[in-house]
Simulated scan of single mutants.
Amino acid sequence: MTEAQYLSGRLLLAMPGMGDDRFDHAVIAMCVHDEHGALGIGIGAVREGITFHGLLQDVGIDPGVAPDVPVLSGGPVETSRGFVLHSTDWGGTGTLQVTGLCALSASMDVLRAIADGKGPSKWLIALGYAGWGAGQLEGEMRRHGWFAAQGSPAILFETPVTARWAATWRGEGIDPSHLVAQTGSA
Results as ranks from 00 to 15, higher is better:
E3I: 10
E3W: 11
Q5V: 00
S8Q: 15
S8V: 01
G9C: 07
R10M: 12
M15F: 08
P16M: 10
P16V: 10
P16N: 08
P16A: 08
G17A: 02
G17K: 05
M18S: 07
D20I: 04
D20H: 06
D21A: 15
H25Y: 04
V27Q: 09
I28R: 01
I28M: 02
M30T: 01
V32T: 14
V32F: 11
D34E: 06
D34M: 06
E35V: 03
G37F: 13
G37T: 05
A38P: 08
L39F: 15
G40I: 12
I41A: 12
G42H: 06
I43G: 05
I43D: 04
V46N: 02
E48R: 13
I50Y: 00
T51N: 12
F52P: 04
G54S: 11
G54H: 04
L55C: 01
L56M: 11
L56K: 03
Q57V: 11
V59L: 12
G60I: 06
G60F: 12
D62S: 14
P63D: 04
G64L: 04
V65H: 01
A66V: 05
P67I: 07
P70V: 07
L72F: 09
L72W: 07
S73K: 02
P76C: 08
V77R: 03
E78W: 04
S80C: 00
R81G: 02
R81H: 15
G82F: 14
D89I: 11
D89T: 06
W90Q: 02
W90H: 13
G91N: 11
T93V: 13
T93I: 03
T95I: 12
L96E: 08
L96W: 00
Q97V: 15
Q97D: 13
Q97R: 15
V98T: 03
V98R: 07
V98F: 04
L101Y: 09
C102W: 06
A103E: 01
S105K: 08
S107G: 10
S107N: 03
D109G: 05
V110Y: 10
V110F: 13
L111A: 01
R112D: 12
R112C: 08
I114F: 09
I114S: 09
I114P: 08
P120H: 05
S121G: 14
W123L: 04
A126W: 02
L127I: 04
Y129P: 00
A130W: 07
G131Y: 14
Q136I: 04
L137E: 12
E138I: 02
G139V: 01
E140R: 07
E140M: 08
M141D: 05
R142I: 01
R142A: 13
R142G: 14
H144L: 07
A149H: 05
Q150L: 13
S152T: 04
P153A: 08
P153F: 06
A154Q: 14
L156E: 06
L156K: 04
L156Q: 06
A166M: 06
A167Y: 00
A167G: 10
T168E: 11
W169V: 03
G171Q: 11
E172V: 01
G173T: 03
D175I: 05
D175L: 07
D175S: 11
S177P: 00
H178Q: 15
V180F: 14
A181N: 11
G184S: 14
G184F: 15
G184A: 13
